[in-house]
Amino acid sequence: MTGNPISPTVPFDQDGINHGFLRLPYSRDDSAWGSVMIPITVVRSSDGPTALLTGGNHGDEYEGPIALQELAATLKPEDIRGRVIIVPALNHPAFLAGTRTSPVDQGNLNRSFPGKPDGTVTQKIAHYVDTVLIPMADIVLDYHSGGKTLDFVPFAAAHVLENKDQQAACVAAMQAFNAPYSATMLEIDSVGMLDTAVEQKGKVFVTTELGGGGTATARSIGIAKKGARNLLKHTGILSGEQELSPTVTLDMPDEECFVFCEQGGMIEPVCDLGNTVAEGDIVARVWPIDRTGANPVEYQAKRSGILMARHFPGLVKMGDCLAVVAKVV
């Protein structure tokens, strides 16, 4: 017993395919006995590994939800060996609002782990994932993109871990996903992340950043769809050959990868995503927006590599991440 109020309307240990919800009671002004209903699909066929596939951890990122909705509609029990748990929009209130954080409690789900069974709505979702879903899984894929404020070259990622055997398994799974770029990713703040919760339990974990700008493209969706099936084939859950293409290997070795803004204004990108930059190259200029006749502030790359990420909206605030430069391995 976890003490968590979420109850599934689908069985986890029954062969076949079941579509339903994770039902979280949520009493509010417009529904005294209301619930948050998080869609979930469980596909199972005999014994075998379990894959947990999640999207919508942030509500303004769409490649994962699209790819997982299609997978939930097309994956058949007779095609697999094991179990696939699909949650296309993990932070469903945020997903419905098209926002990074939940409109219910302003919670950032990917900074809320391990959560609390008696906490806010977002903390209860995190706690259920942490205590029920992750322990069932052998491998976890959590889709991300840049949302409304960042844009990325499309990459799958693994992290540097103390357990090198576990890290090697994560890297192999990342390579199997086979995005155009494959990155060893440095998180600015890993406290409270789903990534950390999964990795601390010794599981294999893969994440992505597949684009951004609060939308998806045909290309980024195609990468997401192919990657999920490649990963299921890699684990032996799904039969068949993986669909593989060349991938560029990236590394984020330290905080010198990040360029942060020190005043607000209007951003002028000086290079585009995927461009090669040298240490000292200007990657962006920030122009004042409250006066004319003033020069912009120029921001330089702190290392050589490629432009992996950039700020997306035209206006920036103090403290915003302007650019990320990753090393090509």
Results as ranks from 00 to 15, higher is better:
178 N>L: 07
208 T>C: 00
179 A>G: 14
138 D>E: 14
148 K>G: 15
118 D>A: 15
206 V>G: 04
146 G>L: 06
212 G>E: 12
130 D>C: 04
118 D>Y: 14
217 T>P: 07
215 T>W: 04
209 E>V: 05
225 K>S: 13
159 H>C: 04
197 A>L: 10
205 F>R: 03
197 A>W: 02
236 G>E: 15
233 K>V: 00
237 I>W: 01
167 Q>H: 03
210 L>E: 02
133 L>V: 05
176 A>I: 12
230 N>C: 10
219 R>Y: 07
144 H>Q: 15
168 A>S: 15
225 K>M: 10
182 S>E: 11
161 L>D: 15
201 K>C: 12
153 V>W: 09
117 P>M: 06
155 F>G: 01
151 D>F: 00
195 D>V: 08
172 A>F: 01
199 E>Q: 15
174 M>Q: 09
220 S>F: 04
200 Q>K: 13
127 H>N: 06
232 L>H: 09
161 L>Y: 12
143 Y>N: 01
135 P>A: 14
189 D>I: 05
145 S>R: 09
160 V>P: 04
123 Q>T: 05
180 P>I: 00
210 L>V: 02
138 D>K: 10
117 P>I: 00
237 I>T: 10
178 N>E: 07
134 I>P: 07
225 K>G: 04
236 G>W: 14
174 M>A: 08
126 A>C: 06
146 G>A: 06
160 V>N: 11
123 Q>C: 01
123 Q>P: 03
169 A>E: 15
120 T>Y: 14
184 T>E: 11
181 Y>W: 10
125 I>G: 07
158 A>V: 00
169 A>P: 07
183 A>Y: 03
149 T>A: 03
173 A>S: 04
121 V>Y: 04
206 V>T: 08
235 T>F: 09
202 G>Y: 11
136 M>C: 00
208 T>K: 03
125 I>Q: 04
144 H>C: 14
190 S>W: 11
196 T>Q: 15
197 A>C: 10
201 K>M: 15
168 A>Q: 08
